[in-house]
Amino acid sequence: MIQTQNLTFKYKNQKTTIGFPDIHLKENEHLLILGKSGIGKTTLLHLLAGLLKPETGNLTINNTNINTLSSSKLDKFRGKNVGLVFQQKHAIQSLSVIENLQARLFFSNKKENQNKLNDLLEQLNLTTCKNNKINQISEGQLQRLGIALSVVHNPQVILADEPTSSLDDENCEAVINLLKQQAEKNKAHLIVITHDQRIKSFFENTMTL
């Protein structure tokens, strides 16, 4: 369950405060947040991930009010419960595909399960490149690794920031399907933030900023 109330945010060195509509997601519900560039989509996503502190308002994820957590507890909470997918697909350059997933598990204090890791690699078609360094894999593989990294630790929320904006129609659909599939497997909420109108039809709940 995710719930926000009267979330507002004030940028540093700026006078204006921006407010966001309340979000209320029940179990197994997903949400698509649409909006033009520069309207504060990423800011909202970072607020949901606990990367930014709101000026006012409350954010509750599964009965934890994350605004009240200390920054070190927030780090732990994020590591355990939140999975992030970035537009610019990124992973740690000095590690291989499998090592990135292992590092993700390490920092979220979750045990490594070799079978589960292999299953995930199989589902996302990454088995062949699992020992490659990040600069040795293709764009598509990197995109799928991004999804794998956001779900490997069984999070409760998957937050995706413009996951499809640089993809063609075919891949766009594939990525959204993968994200939904992984979210359902983990019984996690999927919240996608985008200006990409193509994926509107994949979501029951949409919200426009």
Binding site: L51, K76, R78, H90, A91, A103, H153
Partner: peptide, 17 residues
């Protein structure tokens, strides 16, 4: 590698780590 480090933070790594 500021971006790498930021990503590690989103992985759940603390500043201390």
């Amino acid at each position: 590698r500021a971006f790498d480090l930021a990503i590690l933070r989103t992985y759940g790594a603390s500043n201390l780590q």
